[in-house]
Simulated assay, not measured.
Amino acid sequence: MNVITNNALFGIALSLIAFEIGIIFYKKTKLPIFNPLLIAIALIIVFLTTFNIDLETYNEGAQFINIFLGPATVILAVPLYKQINLLKRYSLPIIAGIFIGSTVGITSIIILSYLLGLNDTLIKSLVPKSVTTPIGIEISSQLNGIISITVVGIIVSGIIGAVFGPLICKILKIENNIAVGISLGTASHAVGTTKALEIGETEGAMSSLSIGIAGIMTVFLAPIIYNILYKILHM
């Protein structure tokens, strides 16, 4: 086993195999709860625990997958380009929707974390939970949060958004393609966008747009909202 795990390709291979199994499982069940990313994470945890493989050994190869996060995010601009006319026509409501969504996301996580008794470091770490990982890591560093906690928060919020987002839209009778895409992208970044792309091209385009704009807005909004709420909540 050591011969395999000590290979730099071990982490990458395990990640790809686990995700591929997740995709197969999702295609067969068609149930949103069986998100490929969620299945992959569960399989990797079980595998590492079963064979007593430490995280550092796995991450020696798996960390290289992070290199593709940036290009993968940029590729999401392709469906947006195809729907550029919609963006021009509804630019104001789109920007307003993303701004409100980002503000509510930051505000709600700070207030809920405070009510649950989390310390300031954990709260700072969870503030960028709704933006894509590269941006979230930078925001967490800016706020002096714990990056590993931030990454976990981003993954969890993405999976929850992808699984329950479309269902919530149906319950609330949100049928507008643009509104659905904006909500998924703003609340659950790239993972939500993959679900939006499944729903339709317009939803996918609007969701991919939301990732970038919500990320930029959060960079500026997160420190401001955190400082304001910190003073209010500690009065």
Score class of each variant (00 low, 15 high):
20 E>A: 10
21 I>T: 11
21 I>E: 05
21 I>R: 11
23 I>C: 15
24 I>W: 10
25 F>E: 06
25 F>L: 12
26 Y>D: 12
26 Y>S: 15
28 K>R: 14
29 T>A: 14
30 K>T: 10
30 K>N: 15
31 L>V: 10
31 L>S: 12
33 I>G: 04
33 I>N: 05
38 L>S: 12
40 A>R: 12
42 A>P: 04
45 I>P: 04
46 V>G: 07
48 L>K: 07
48 L>E: 01
50 T>S: 09
50 T>G: 05
50 T>H: 09
51 F>K: 11
52 N>T: 00
55 L>G: 00
56 E>D: 07
58 Y>D: 03
59 N>Y: 08
60 E>G: 11
60 E>W: 01
61 G>H: 04
62 A>M: 12
62 A>F: 04
63 Q>R: 15
63 Q>T: 15
65 I>K: 11
65 I>V: 15
66 N>H: 03
67 I>N: 10
68 F>G: 08
69 L>W: 03
70 G>N: 00
71 P>G: 05
71 P>S: 04
72 A>E: 00
73 T>P: 01
73 T>F: 01
73 T>L: 06
73 T>Y: 01
73 T>G: 01
74 V>D: 00
74 V>K: 00
76 L>V: 00
77 A>S: 10
78 V>P: 03
78 V>T: 05
78 V>M: 07
80 L>C: 02
81 Y>N: 03
82 K>G: 03
84 I>M: 05
86 L>R: 09
86 L>D: 03
86 L>P: 02
87 L>M: 07
88 K>Q: 06
89 R>M: 03
89 R>K: 13
90 Y>K: 13
92 L>M: 14
92 L>R: 14
92 L>N: 07
93 P>G: 07
93 P>T: 04
94 I>G: 08
94 I>K: 11
95 I>K: 09
95 I>F: 15
96 A>N: 07
96 A>Q: 11
97 G>R: 04
98 I>A: 08
99 F>P: 03
101 G>W: 02
101 G>V: 06
102 S>L: 13
103 T>I: 13
104 V>W: 07
105 G>E: 06
105 G>V: 12
107 T>A: 15
107 T>E: 10
